[in-house]
Structures are given as structure tokens and as C-alpha cells.
């Protein structure tokens, strides 16, 4: 039976560092009690802002950023090890052209898509859709694609572009449920022995260092009609506005949980952190994905010209 079309060609852009490029100067550190909307804006800024001029994650020795995708439980067999993809990313939060808000570049460094590069240009005018330029090494061509949709899957994971990049605070209605403390470890992908190989051997285990940290509990209901979730409840660090855990609900059913292990980048503003790992688990089928960015791959505020973020770099990268 026919079921699908190959229409989401937008190769998974690596937005991980977009999420780590932190805290905007235009968003001062908040003081005093905060409303739900203010917390949501702080979280968004913390995840999408641009205090750092640029940030990169690039293989150093054996350290490399990886995305690991594991099949749903029903499809897991002994001969099916999780899929692994390695990548380098380059994020420019302060391009000189005021019309452009950010320039993000990702290059896949392994597998069948090795060498495929993507340049994501986001404009200051949000009404103007972002543009993706994609370098296809086998064809030796650049193709331009319009902005992906919120619900499009990100790089074969169970995360969406909306969750990682596109969704803004105004897309949801926020309600502060209260305050509390992180009560448990942040889960991570637990691989069985037969699922491991040399690329997944170094994946981190559950992060328990955040236990006891004070958090806001924020309920955010989507404004989109017929959406894949109705609302999510998030635990947000009261000091850094790092989003540790997000649980998505459809009706009363818990459908997905996303854990992010935010770690300090030793910057003056506590909001400047990076996601050491993101782990997402879909409860209905057990599919899970993990993005791991070793600290050793990250560099900040390098002396790189804007024209580094170009289609030409995509063509020549790695040669």
C-alpha cells in the first residue's frame, strides 16, 4: 500500500548551536517576580538569542557532535543498531547585514550524505521566510528550499523544527503552574550492549547534577489548530532559564518527553549555556533520539568573516 511521498527533503539542519547561542543583550537579566509570558520569553531568548557573535561545533580528534536515532520499540531487532550521523555546525548570530538575523551552517561528515551542507539564512523580517541552501555533493549542485514547517521532523529524529527553531513564545498560551525543584535525573538514551558501536560508546548517561535546582513549572498550550500536541509542561531553571524537561500532552495522554542537559559555557551571563545533550522519547512507540555535542568540539566568538557562511564554503568544505 502506498503511504508517503518524499516531500520533506530539507535535510536536517543542525540547530543545536542555534539553541546554544545564548542570551541577548537586548534581553537584560530579569529581576523580581515574573509572569508566565515573561518566563517563556526568557526561555526563548536563552535558546535563540545572540550574546555570542558566533559559535561552532567542529570535530576535534575523536570528539564529534552526533545525532543518534533509534527505531521504535516494535522495529528493534538484534541486527538493527541505532543510526548515527556526525556533523559540524557554524552559527553566526551577528551578521553585518541588518536584514539577516542569523546565518547557520551545518555539514554532515559521515554516511551516505557525507559532505552534504546546509546554509540556513534567517531574516530579521519574520514575514520573510527563511531560506535553506543545500549543497548536494553527489550532484555537485546547490538547491534552495523554502523554510520547513513547524511539524517537519528534524533530521530523522523525533524532534520537530518547531520545537528546535521555529516556535516562538507567541505561538502558545503560557500558564505558570508554580515553582519547585528538579527531582530526578535527566534521562538519556540507554543502549543495550548489542546496540552499541564505537560511535555510540561515548554517549553520556543520565544527568543527575541538576537535581535540587529550583525551577519554574510552565504550562504552554499551542495556539495552532489540530496540532500534534495540546500543551506541554516544562521545567525551567530559575537562574539560567535553561529548559531541562518538556513533557508534551495530547488530551490527557503523555506523548513525548524531551530532556536537555544544559551546561555552562563559563560566561558572565548565567543564561549562556549549551545543550550537552538533547534526549527525546516518544511514549507511544518508544522511538528515541539523542543529540550529543561534546564540550571539546565547541568554540565561541571566532574570528570568522560573514562570507564564511556562504554557498561557496558548502562547496569546498572538507576538500
Amino acid at each position: 500500500m502506498h503511504k508517503s511521498t518524499p516531500l520533506r527533503y530539507a535535510v536536517g539542519l543542525i540547530f543545536v548551536l542555534a539553541a546554544s547561542a545564548q542570551a541577548s543583550e537586548s534581553m537584560p537579566y530579569p529581576q523580581g517576580p515574573m509572569s508566565a509570558d515573561e518566563i517563556a520569553r526568557q526561555v526563548y531568548t536563552a535558546a535563540h538569542g545572540g550574546l555570542v557573535q558566533n559559535a561552532i561545533s567542529k570535530r576535534k580528534g575523536r570528539d564529534v557532535a552526533v545525532v543518534v536515532n533509534r527505531a521504535p520499540l516494535a522495529m528493534r531487532t538484534q541486527d538493527r543498531i541505532p543510526g548515527v550521523q556526525t556533523f559540524d555546525t557554524y552559527v553566526n548570530n551577528s551578521p553585518r547585514d541588518p536584514a539577516i538575523e542569523t546565518l547557520q551552517m551545518a555539514i554532515l561528515t559521515s554516511g551516505r550524505t557525507k559532505g552534504t551542507g546546509v546554509l540556513f539564512t534567517r531574516y530579521a523580517d519574520r514575514d520573510k521566510g527563511a531560506i535553506i541552501s543545500m549543497w548536494l555533493p553527489a550532484l555537485r549542485k546547490i538547491r534552495r528550499i523554502n523554510e520547513p514547517s513547524h511539524e517537519d521532523v528534524w533530521f530523522g529524529t523525533n524532534l520537530t523544527y518547531g520545537e528546535l527553531v521555529l516556535r516562538g513564545p507567541d505561538d502558545e498560551v503560557h500558564e505558570l503552574l508554580g515553582e519547585g525543584k528538579v527531582e530526578g535525573c535527566l534521562e538519556a538514551m540507554a543502549l543495550k550492549h548489542w546496540e552499541k558501536n564505537r560511535y555510540t560508546l561515548q554517549l553520556p548517561g543520565p544527568q543527575c547534577a541538576h537535581i535540587g535546582k529550583p525551577v519554574y513549572r510552565l504550562k504552554s498550550a499551542t495556539k495552532f489548530k489540530n496540532w500534534w500536541y495540546d500543551y506541554h509542561i516544562s521545567e525551567i531553571d530559575k537562574r539560567t532559564f535553561a529548559l531541562y524537561q518538556t513533557v508534551y500532552y495530547k488530551g490527557a495522554e503523555k506523548i513525548k518527553t524531551v530532556y536537555i542537559d544544559w551546561q555552562s559555557l563559563d560566561q558572565p551571563d548565567p543564561r549562556i549555556t549549551y545543550p550537552r545533550y538533547i534526549y527525546a522519547l516518544t511514549h507511544a512507540d518508544g522511538k528515541d533520539s539523542m543529540v550529543y555535542v561534546p564540550r571539546g568540539t565547541i568554540s565561541l566568538n571566532l574570528d570568522l568573516a560573514d562570507d564564511f557562511w556562504s554557498e561557496e564554503t558548502l562547496r569546498t568544505y572538507g576538500r
Binding site: S4, P6, Y9, P72, M75, R112, T116, L139, G156
Partner: peptide, 25 residues
């Protein structure tokens, strides 16, 4: 070329979407 297409399709599909037609393992 077809390997690139396969890789692109693999990474842009939701869980199980391609698996109705091809063994992605």
C-alpha cells in the same frame, strides 16, 4: 547519487514512514 537520495529520504522521514516500502535497516 541514489545513495545521497537514500540518505536524504532517510533523514527527512518520520519514524516508520519509509519502512512501509523499504527495509531501512
Amino acid at each position: 547519487t541514489v545513495q545521497l537520495y537514500n540518505g536524504m529520504l532517510d533523514t527527512s522521514a518520520v519514524a516508520g514512514e519509509l519502512d512501509s516500502f523499504i527495509n531501512t535497516r
